[in-house]
Nucleic acid binder design. Structure first.
Lengths: 372, 372
DNA sequence: CTGAAAGCGCTTACAG
DNA sequence: CTGAAAGCGCTTACAG
């Protein structure tokens, strides 16, 4: 605890025989310094185990703005948690003159964007932001290239949460641990059904790595917790398809007793099961949490839901990115898995964010809707 | 996000017509200020919605030291998480010139202390610490009084974690939500055993409020998740008693199928059950997590353990206390419940702290053993 | 009781 | 490319 951080910029300046200003320039990478001088400064800093004081660094100077994007429907079910995490982290860093801009693109989905949306994103990036979290990535490579060019030119630092699409070279990535989530689902279903329980999985799209990992986690856990996996349905995050898949499941596999819903459409699956003659015979483990799921938890159809703590991921990503922008020190662990949380009836209340909450209201009000 | 925090000490000084130094003194409570002047300054601060910059405040001045106590056995199983939380929080606040002192009193238990231990605690408090977390509280009121006197005299700010013993007027209290933990245990047992499953509870001491809350949570959940609660055993955190109680349970209630162990002795209970002829017939939900419990989780005797995130509690308590000492602004929420975490086989790994970890080693090395 | 001044560690125009 | 100087917002001896 002690002895650390004794070296200041002056210590280094003395040792190298230059002014503090030069040391500052060499260390922060702002402004020209003769390469040789820079080397000697870096060496001295290393040797003295110099750590910059984030305090002093941020006492003056312009604000650091970080933009957070969220695209697609499900603002309240999903995106809001991301915004809230970033918003709260920003509040906590207010002393450091860090600001957040929250941009919501409601009309953009399936990784496709209209030209005007790309323009808007570029305009935001060119407005002076220093970092971006969850910068949208499109299927159209030409669009990505244009955005990436701006990112490069401006030296914007990137971070991302939730999904592990490591395009765009983010500096930090706070990822959902979907493998473990799948394993937890299998274990919980086994707890309920016992050896050989007949189960099924609903996923978004089997061959996307993100969802494949969840299925793998489930299957691997089945070696310790033997279940009989009857079938896997894909629903492509489409409500219609999810409904019909549930329908097909009940028709084709009437003896199914458990379902793990790894996709976003758990609500629809629940609806269809509720319409069946013996809904109480089937136990679900779902993913994520939103108010409409709660009644199904209360009536014991959904026995647990596994959440990925989007809030925490965004909170940590924001902090890490801000820290990077202040210190220029790269992350120790650039990729971090966030622990899935297990939510039951008994603790569901602790995970619901009251929309009435003042902070949530303030956050909502600060979100910019990027319409088209 | 904007417009906030525009007012500085100078803004106030101008408005009131005094110097910045006087404003500083009035706001920080250090040094004499004429009461009337102080009033006008406070009013102006209020009006301008002044928030001090923690950065500027901590740029100079002496260090702030916070001491964390942990008494009793179970350093590795329990106390270490508390120390680690405080240690990590301190690291994060290093910029603010905040230090932690971690004091472990291995020989003190049952809230009884020898005179020399009281002396040592007082010596630590008089060594210039500004805050204390989990200051021990004794059954002997005379001892408490002596310690409290020092706390008062020195103006030491108090915070506590884990237990809800709100003696000593802590400013913050980060508490375990044992009520919810009890409810979770009942729900999980019901998942496994179904309606009317025969269960039992092991607790430390029924009539202590902390443990009573857990039992209440369990009982309340039984209304939604009907179980047949056969018997409750107390074990006073004593290994012998725990062993014999398990013995008695198996003898007197051979049809018991589930146990919720709300006390610290889950290990002993597991041992006794493992010796029984059909250990696989009984499912346990335990509390806390330590390496020796893992084999029982792996062999599926312990189906889940509910942990109270001591680490997080201590981390947050340290941060809140440091923040209070810097800003003098009292907490919005002086008492906070920390969400219990549910640990299964599938995710147990994520909750075990590798002792080999560098940070853990550094933390361990920094702990002061207060021997007697 | 109060003010002028120095200082915390760093950055950044402003001159060379 | 580099240095001297001012400034970020606050605290605290040091003089009055």
């Amino acid at each position: 605890m002690d002895g650390i951080n004794k070296a200041s910029i002056y210590t280094i300046a003395q040792r190298v025989g230059v002014s503090a200003a030069t040391v500052s320039r060499a260390l922060s990478g702002q402004g020209r310094v003769r390469p040789e001088t820079r080397q000697r400064i870096l060496a001295a800093a290393e040797e003295l185990n110099y750590r910059p004081s984030r305090l002093a660094r941020r006492l003056s100077g312009p604000e650091i703005t970080i933009v957070v994007f969220y695209a697609g429907m499900h603002l309240e079910e999903f995106g809001l948690d991301i915004f809230r995490g970033a918003y709260d982290a920003c509040q906590e860093l207010a002393d450091y003159h860090v600001r957040v801009r929250m941009c919501y693109l409601p009309n953009m989905m399936n990784f496709r964007a209209k030209e005007c949306e790309v323009e808007q994103i570029i305009r935001i990036l060119e407005s002076g932001v220093r970092g971006a979290i969850n910068l949208p990535i499109f299927s159209d490579e030409a669009q990505n290239a244009r955005i990436q060019q701006v990112v490069q030119e401006r030296g914007i630092a990137l971070a991302q949460t939730v999904h592990s699409r490591d395009k765009g070279n983010p500096i930090f990535s706070y990822q959902s641990d979907v493998y473990t989530a799948g394993a937890i689902a299998a274990e919980l279903l086994w707890n309920i059904l016992g050896d050989g329980g007949k189960v099924s999985i609903f996923t978004t799209q089997k061959d996307l790595p993100f969802y494949a990992a969840g299925i793998r986690g489930f299957r691997d856990a089945m070696q310790r917790y033997p279940l009989d996996l009857l079938v896997i349905y894909e629903n492509y995050d489409d409500r219609q398809i999810a409904y019909h898949a549930t329908d097909a499941l009940l028709r084709n596999y009437p003896d199914v007793r458990g379902i793990f819903v790894g996709s976003a459409n758990s609500k629809t699956v629940c609806q269809r099961i509720a319409e069946s003659p013996h809904p109480e015979e089937i136990s679900l483990i779902t993913s994520d949490l939103y108010p409409e799921l709660v009644p199904y938890i209360e009536r014991r159809m959904v026995r647990a839901t596994i959440i990925q703590a989007q809030y925490t991921q965004a909170f940590e990503a924001f902090r890490a990115l801000a820290n990077y922008l202040i210190t220029h020190i790269p992350a120790e662990q650039p990729v971090r898995m966030v622990r899935p949380q297990i939510v039951l009836h008994s603790n569901v209340e602790q995970f619901l964010t009251p929309m009435s909450d003042k902070r949530v209201a303030a956050c909502l009000a600060a979100i910019e809707r990027i319409e088209t």
